[in-house]
Design a protein around this nucleic acid. Structure first.
Length: 820
DNA sequence: AGCACGCCGACT
DNA sequence: GTCGGCGTGCTC
């Protein structure tokens, strides 16, 4: 019986984003399955291309000529049925292509590499012109076979035409070749294959034959076992040939072993014996009970900082292991959560796989294989770990799920929480969303019964949350204090140093000063690529753009009015470091921000130093607010709490509330009492007032009213479409066309009111990396989100060429985390 | 996207 | 008359 497969071709194009039907050749009929990776020829050029089988049927629908699948590319399907469901769902949800979604689940690095080759088949050089002979010369130089691409670089682009002629004349043959990139790595262990006393005799014989190197090897192996081939070659300064000839003589054995490139972490914590409190036990029993239920709602684990959420995670994973189920744990950022990961590693040892974006393709491949083969049962990682190829999922845990890193910035711009929900549905596993400051929309879902709320109201050590003292910086200024430290923060730091306790100072901006300007004419130094003022970095005397990395030296004279009144304004972590050193000469200070942690392992180094009390004061940006546990920190200073409030973004209040909570939670985690001093110019904003009292419920009640009034999440969805490009006029012209097209289609469907479309407007950051950016925001107020998405897909993808210029880019984001 | 086909002007 | 330049349209 004839069989057909519907496949997605691995072609990076919007125009080929559909299912293509191929005939399954006889020899594959019993073998091919949904999810298999196959090789097909595609397009008029019959280019071999990788494809993914999405459906298999015994008939073809429609009238077109079918091609045959050439072969399968892996022994077993690479995508599971649930993967295909998730891919289809993502494509709809985030307006992306099949391939965009597949690239999330099945990462690149193991793809086919294909190329066209010309082969000489007949040596007949009569009636040929000069160019043809030149081409044939090159082919012959390369033993009668050469890649067309290489031929093109050696000669010129007319090669394709010439070889086609040669092909017509029957002199050459053009074909496609491909090779699978193998990512498996092996180690070769070498051992002696003879007894020790035989070895001495052998060594003598070898020396007689002047095979000194081989003698060396035997001598070395006499004292060492399981020597890795590369080590052996390095240590004895020998080549592979000596080893090979020893193997041929049967004197040594070479054992081929799988090598898993295990990523290293170098942060250790002791395994404390922990007695769970009543609250924790209640939560755990609830979660355990639900594991066997059908149709589970996601759980929102709302636990104040230090309430022992990680302990709950460990217990649930243990339960999953008992049922022989896998677990996935997502953390906001691997390098920022070494303590959490160390705790998991301590408990579960080597059945843990750690995945993150900094792994090499080979390392990633190894971890994937360990998971697939069941050698790793617990996966910890950043958002992409969600797609790990687990065999049978028992639980997905998303820690600190309010963090913005769970939203992908790249296409597809997926939200890990939504994808996790989808995966947990298809796998029927439980989903735990943990946070001390849940996003407003998630808490709302608890209220309407979409999530089940689990609460940990008390800190595990029964300590109260540290009290937060608010200092109005306007008043400080009125009282003549121009320094960045208020009087009370200054005194507190001093006292803390005297008592030999540790202090954390938090400021959400790195660098020295937030901007540099001329006091005479008001000139502000800006990035030449972005519409962003440059942050001043004093050590190098440069202005740095924190968006594109641009740097420029700050001159003494104003480039505009040539005066000498150049001064830096605003504060950054560098400036704080300088001030601390100025006022507290004996204090040992560490700074942790993007500038001090760019080196690999720098995070751990700084955190370790601080933990070991090698420093008294840690100054840092948001980085320090994440799941870190320092016993001796008794004072936290928040230097400019209202900084985030000034962002033109609907989530800025929420973010302010979250950050204050997170950072404050760093104080007094162990036996000592903590104290938090919060400095702000705006002390009356509701997000600061509620944060100071740790009143999440109160903040929620106010914030949800605002969300409702302005039709924001969770009451409405928000779609952001940004058009960006180097040519500002074109960008404006194109965004207008986009607006007009949307209006045109909606009018035809009978809509008259377009208040729900905001824009077109320049983005709050109107230029990044030389690209001008304009934006349209849509809320699904009186138009169904599905309809809006289909209209956007039609305009921005299907009819893209017709409506937009080539050199502008379109970015579509469904429910973006920020709209900058 | 990326490739082949095809139509038209500039050359041996 | 042919080469080769780019516009057009399709990909199972």
């Amino acid at each position: 019986m004839e069989k057909y497969a519907k496949v997605v071709v691995s072609n990076n194009s919007n125009h080929t984003d559909e299912l293509y039907t191929y005939k399954i050749p006889e020899f594959l009929i019993d073998e091919i399955k949904i999810g298999h990776r196959v090789l097909v020829t595609f397009g008029r050029g019959n280019k071999p291309i990788e494809a993914f089988v999405f459906e298999i049927s015994s008939f073809k629908e429609g009238d077109f000529k079918v091609k045959e699948i050439i072969n399968i590319l892996d022994e077993n399907p690479i995508l599971k049925k649930r993967d295909i469901e998730i891919i289809k769902w993502m494509r709809e949800e985030y307006i992306c292509t099949f391939m965009d979604a597949i690239n999330c689940i099945y990462p690149k690095g193991m793809r086919v590499d294909n190329y066209k080759v010309v082969k000489l088949i007949k040596k007949e050089f009569d009636n040929l012109n000069k160019k043809e002979i030149k081409v044939l010369d090159e082919i012959m130089k390369n033993k009668g076979k050469i890649k067309v691409e290489i031929l093109k670089t050696k000669l010129d682009n007319s090669v394709e035409n010439i070889i086609k002629k040669l092909k017509d004349k029957g002199i050459v043959n053009i074909s496609w070749e491909y090779k699978s990139i193998k990512n498996e790595k092996y180690i070769y262990n070498i051992n002696l294959n003879i007894l020790d006393d035989e070895a001495d005799e052998t060594v003598d014989n070898l020396i007689k034959k002047r095979a000194f190197k081989q003698a060396d090897i035997i001598n070395f192996l006499k004292n060492n076992q399981n020597v890795e081939i590369n080590d052996l070659m390095d240590l004895l300064n020998i080549s592979k040939s000596s080893i090979k000839s020893l193997e041929e003589k049967g004197l040594i054995t070479i054992e081929k072993l799988d090598y898993y490139r295990k990523p290293k972490t170098n942060y250790e914590v002791k395994n404390k014996k922990i007695n769970l409190n009543e609250e924790q036990l209640k939560v755990i029993s609830k979660l355990k009970k639900s594991m066997d239920k059908e149709n589970k709602n996601p759980f929102l684990l709302y636990g104040v900082t230090g309430s022992g959420k990680t302990e709950i995670y460990l217990n649930i994973i243990e339960e999953a292991l008992k049922k022989n189920l896998d677990s996935i744990v997502l953390v906001p950022e691997i390098s920022l959560t070494p303590q959490t990961i160390a705790r998991f590693k301590n408990k579960f040892k080597d059945i843990i796989a750690v995945l993150h974006s900094k792994l090499s393709n080979g390392e990633k491949y190894d971890e994937y294989r360990r998971i697939k083969e069941g050698n790793a049962k617990i996966v910890i990682g950043a958002r992409s770990a969600l797609f790990a190829p687990c065999n049978n999922l028992g639980v997905i845990i998303i820690d600190e799920f309010h963090e913005s890193s769970y939203k992908s910035e790249m296409n597809p711009k997926y939200n890990s929480i939504e994808v996790a929900k989808q995966i947990s549905k298809t796998e029927n596993c439980i989903l735990i969303l943990g946070s001390a400051t849940p996003p407003i929309e998630a808490y709302y879902k608890c209220k309407v019964g979409e999530y089940e709320l689990l609460e940990l109201k008390n800190r595990a050590n029964n300590k109260e949350m540290p009290s937060i003292e608010v200092v109005d910086m306007k008043e400080e200024l009125n009282n003549g204090n121009k320094s960045i430290f208020s009087k009370s923060l200054f005194e507190a730091i001093k006292e803390n140093l005297q008592n030999n306790n540790q202090t954390i100072l938090f400021l959400n901006r790195r660098g020295y000063a937030s901007f540099v300007s001329c006091r005479k004419c008001g000139y502000i130094f800006k990035c030449s690529n972005c519409e962003i003022s440059l942050t001043y970095h004093k050590r190098k005397n440069v202005g740095k753009c924190h968006y594109c990395g641009y740097e420029m030296n700050i001159p003494k004279e104003c480039p505009d009015c040539e005066s000498n009144y150049i001064k830096e304004f605003g504060i950054g972590t560098q400036k704080i470091e300088e001030e601390v050193k100025k006022y507290f000469k004996d204090a040992k200070v560490l700074r942790m921000d993007k500038d001090t942690t760019s080196k690999k392992g720098a995070h751990e180094e700084i955190l370790n130093k601080f933990k070991n009390k090698e420093a008294d004061i840690l100054i840092g940006t948001q980085m320090i607010g994440k799941g870190l546990d320092f016993e001796n920190v008794t004072l936290v200073g928040i230097l400019a709490a209202d900084m985030i409030l000034n962002f033109p973004d609907f989530r800025s209040s929420e973010r302010t509330f979250q950050i204050i909570n997170q950072v404050a939670g760093r104080a007094g985690r162990a036996h000592l009492n903590g104290r938090v001093i919060l400095q702000s110019y705006d002390t009356e904003h509701y997000s600061i007032e509620y944060a100071v009292n740790y009143d999440y419920e109160g903040f929620y009640k106010d914030e949800i009213k605002i969300r409702n009034a302005f039709n924001y999440i969770p009451f409405n969805n928000l779609i952001s479409i940004v058009i960006y490009g180097k040519n500002e006029k074109k960008v404006i012209n194109n965004i207008q066309k986009l607006y007009d097209s949307i209006i045109y289609i909606l009018r035809k469907r009978g809509y008259e009111n377009f208040d729900f479309i905001l824009g077109p407007n320049p983005c709050p950051i109107s230029k990044i990396n030389l690209n001008y950016r304009w934006q349209i925001l849509l809320k699904d107020i009186n138009v169904e989100i599905k309809l809006l998405k289909s209209i956007i897909k039609y305009i921005c993808i299907q009819k893209r060429e017709l409506i937009f210029d080539q050199d502008v880019n379109i970015s579509i984001d469904i429910n973006p985390f920020n709209i900058l």
